[in-house]
Design a protein around this nucleic acid. Structure first.
Lengths: 237, 237
DNA sequence: CCAATTGGATTGTTCAACAATCCTTCGATC
DNA sequence: GATCGAAGGATTGTTGAACAATCCAATTGG
C-alpha cells in the first residue's frame, strides 16, 4: 500500500508520458536508495547495475546523471557514482532551504487552492493511519507528504520540485536515525494542529509553529549525527 | 600533512581539472543559450550539434540532460531538446521562488560572513561600471550577480545552486525585453540602497525594499509578455 | 478540400571498442 | 621491516556504428 502510494507520488510528477527507459531505471534506483537497500556511501558499478537491470551503460549513465542532480547520487570523475552520504552540515543546509520555502508558502496560503489545502489534510490522515497500524516508516512517508503539501500551497511548480528534491535527500538522512518511531511520532500532533490553523486562516501562527518544529527536528538530527561521530558511543571492537 | 595535500589536490582539481567533456560541452551550450545565440524554442539536433562540437551523440545527450535539469533546455520524448521558452506563468513562478529565497537570506543576513556581504558590494560596483560604459547587457549581468550575492548571504550551498538556476532561466526571459536599458538601469540605484541598508544592519527594511522591487520587476516582465501575445501589437503580415 | 498512407529523418537504446585514469599488488631499495 | 615506486588489472570516459521506435511531412487517393 505504502509503496503503491510512493510510486504514485513519484509518478505523478511527469504525467503519463513515462516511456523512457532512463526514467524507469532512475525510478528503480531512487526507490532502492530511499528505502535503504543501497546504503549511503555505496558505490554503484556501471557494469554490475547495468547487467542487473538489463540496460546498457550509456542509458545507465544518463539515469545516474539524473539522480546526481536530484542529490541522491554524487559523481566523482573517473571514480564512479556513490550514494550520497549527507553530513550534519547538509542537514543544516537542507533545513535552511526548507524553512525559507515552506514558511513562505504557508504565510502566503491565503491564495492557495482548495485542492492544495485538501492535500495537507489528506497527508495528516495518512499519518494517522500509519500511526495506528504501527508503520513507522510509513509515518515518515506521511510526514514527508505533509511537508510537500505545505510547500504545494504556494502553487509553484518550481517550489514543488525543489522541495521534492530536498525531501528525497532528507530520506537519506533519516537512515542515521536508529529510532524512527520516537523521531517521527511526535510530529503527527503538530501536523494536525498546523492543519487546523491553516483551515482557520491563522497563517502566521501556523508558520511560527512550523518554524519552531523545524528547528527542533533539525537539532535532533544534528545531535544524532554528533553521536555517530562521537567515539564514546562506539561499541568496543 | 596528508590532509593539507589532499585538500590542495581536491581544490585544484575542481578548478583546473574540469576535464569532463560533458561539462565542457554543457558550458559552451549554456553560454550560447544565455547570450541568445540559441534562441528560445530552437531545437537542438543531436547530429548537427554533435558534429559542430566534435563530440559523440552519447556525450552530447549527457550534456543535454545536465542543461535540462538546469531549466535551460526542455526535453520532449522522441522529439528532441529545445531551448526553454519561458511563459508569463514561468515568470510569476520564478519570482515567487526568488522572493522566498532572497528575502529569507536577506532577513537572516545578521549571521552572514563578511565575504558574502562584500560580494554584494562588488556586484553593485560592477553594475556602476557597466552603466558608465553603456554596457546594458553587462548591467543585466551585474544585476544577476547582485541577486546571487543576496542569496549567498544565507551561506547555503543549496540556495546558491537553486538561485543560480533560477537566474539562468531568467536570462532567457530577458530576451523578450526589447529595451534592456530601460529595464535594467533603474535597479542600479535600488541595489545601491539595499546594499547600504544591509551594511547598516537594517535588514528588515532592506528586505521590504527588495520585495517591492521584485514585485515591480515581475509586473514589468509580465506586461512585456502580454504585449507579445497581444494581437494588436503584431505587424500585419 | 480532407483523410490515410508512406517514406525519410530524428531520437532512443544497445553494443563493442579503445583511451585514460584509478586502485592494488608486487617488488625494489634503503 | 618499512617506504617508495612501478607494472597490472579493473573501472570509467568517450567514441562510433547499428538498429528499432517514433515523429513529421509529402504524397496519394477519395
Amino acid at each position: 500500500m505504502t509503496e503503491e502510494l510512493t510510486d504514485l507520488l513519484a509518478g505523478s510528477r511527469n504525467l503519463v508520458g513515462r516511456s523512457s527507459t532512463v526514467e524507469r531505471v532512475a525510478d528503480v534506483l531512487r526507490g532502492h536508495i530511499i528505502d535503504g537497500a543501497l546504503a549511503p556511501g555505496a558505490r554503484l558499478s556501471e557494469e554490475a547495475i547495468g547487467a542487473a537491470l538489463g540496460v546498457s551503460r550509456n542509458t545507465l549513465r544518463e539515469a545516474f546523471r539524473l539522480l546526481s542532480h536530484e542529490g541522491l547520487l554524487v559523481h566523482e570523475f573517473n571514480r564512479g557514482v556513490f550514494v550520497a552520504k549527507p553530513t550534519a552540515e547538509d542537514v543544516v543546509d537542507l533545513y535552511r532551504v526548507r524553512r525559507a520555502l515552506e514558511l513562505s508558502a504557508l504565510r502566503g496560503a491565503a491564495e492557495a487552492s482548495d485542492e492544495a489545502v485538501a492535500l495537507v489534510g489528506a497527508s495528516v490522515e495518512m499519518g494517522q493511519r500509519a500511526f495506528d497500524s504501527g508503520d513507522w516508516w510509513g509515518l515518515g512517508t506521511a510526514n514527508m507528504r505533509f511537508h510537500q503539501a505545505i510547500a504545494g500551497l504556494a502553487g509553484s511548480p518550481r517550489t514543488d520540485e525543489i522541495v521534492r528534491r530536498l525531501l528525497a535527500e532528507l530520506r537519506l538522512v533519516f537512515h542515521v536515525m536508529s529510532a524512527p518511531r520516537e523521531f517521527h511520532a511526535p510530529y503527527l500532533e503538530q501536523n494536525k494542529e498546523i492543519h487546523r490553523m491553516l483551515c482557520e486562516g491563522r497563517l502566521d501562527e501556523a508558520a511560527d509553529r512550523l518554524g519552531g518544529y523545524l528547528d527542533v527536528a533539525e537539532r535532533q538530527l544534528v545531535d544524532a549525527f554528533a553521536e555517530l561521530d562521537d567515539p564514546r558511543s562506539q561499541a568496543p571492537a
